[in-house]
């Protein structure tokens, strides 16, 4: 099913519990908002078509294990005559494992982009950003990943974190920054697209992913010639 896909981009969405990571994603992918989202256990993924830079993009999104299949194209001039191929983007949610700070190192493997989310109405979620950056630095396998800071829930009245504070933090750590509301849809589309675009514009970031492809297990047999038994099954 992935035959025509050039590469896989992996994007992590992290941040404290309850800042609205899953809501942001659902808003982006599904244009829905569900205040009771916490109950989405075991739901898997959704498919959607969007436009980035006037080009069509198709996504399949996994809820909780968010994984977006992204077969889309940007303007060729972005690539400086590089060959453009469809690719997959996996948006990985934390599956609730952030709650007691027990994300597995394997969650971070090979990510090219990170969306770091805090809640503008809860200062504690902003203060904890340092911990998350620390964790990122510890586990991420590469140094040039694109980070984006998202201040969520700007629709709420009781704001505790000023926009400038967020901006300052993002500048300090060389991250993209945007404020958003999953509820009202403000800034959501922008956040995801900008991040993906930035990754695409950093060709070394995603091209190298092709060089070390591992075997993915699937129901299909993937034997190269000969099939199972290394050829011994066939008559000599």
């Amino acid at each position: 099913m992935d035959e025509d896909v050039l590469t896989t981009l992996k994007i992590l969405i992290i941040g404290e519990s309850g800042v609205g990571k899953s809501s942001l994603l659902l808003r982006f992918t599904d244009d829905t908002f569900d205040p009771e989202l916490a109950a989405t256990i075991g739901v898997d993924f959704k498919v959607k078509t969007i436009s980035v830079d006037g080009n069509k993009a198709k996504l399949a999104i996994w809820v909780r294990v968010f994984k977006i299949k992204f077969n889309f194209f940007l303007n060729p001039h972005l690539f400086n005559s590089k060959v453009i191929k469809p690719y997959i983007i996996k948006y990985m949610d934390t599956a609730g494992q952030e709650r007691f700070r027990t994300l597995t190192p394997s969650y971070y493997r090979g990510a090219q982009g990170v969306i770091l989310v805090y809640d503008v109405t809860r200062r504690d979620t902003f203060v904890k950003l340092d911990n998350w950056l620390n964790e990122l630095e510890t586990y991420c396998t590469r140094n040039d990943i694109v980070n984006m800071l998202v201040g969520n829930k700007i629709d709420k009245e009781n704001r505790e974190v000023d926009r400038n504070e967020g901006l300052k933090f993002a500048r300090k750590h060389s991250m993209l920054f945007i404020e958003a509301s999953a509820k009202t849809c403000d800034g959501v589309q922008c956040a995801f697209e900008e991040l993906v675009e930035k990754i695409i514009q950093t060709p070394g970031l995603w091209e190298s992913e092709n060089q070390n492809k591992g075997v993915k297990l699937s129901h299909r047999e993937e034997g190269h010639g000969g099939g199972a038994c290394g050829g011994y099954c066939s008559v000599l």
């Binding site: 599904d30 739901v43 898997d44 993924f45 959704k46 498919v47 959607k48 078509t49 969007i50 069509k56 198709k58 399949a60 996994w62």
Partner: peptide, 9 residues
């Protein structure tokens, strides 16, 4: 997952 929701194109 592909069986759950499918919209758009």
């Amino acid at each position: 997952p592909e069986d759950i929701i499918f919209d758009g194109d």
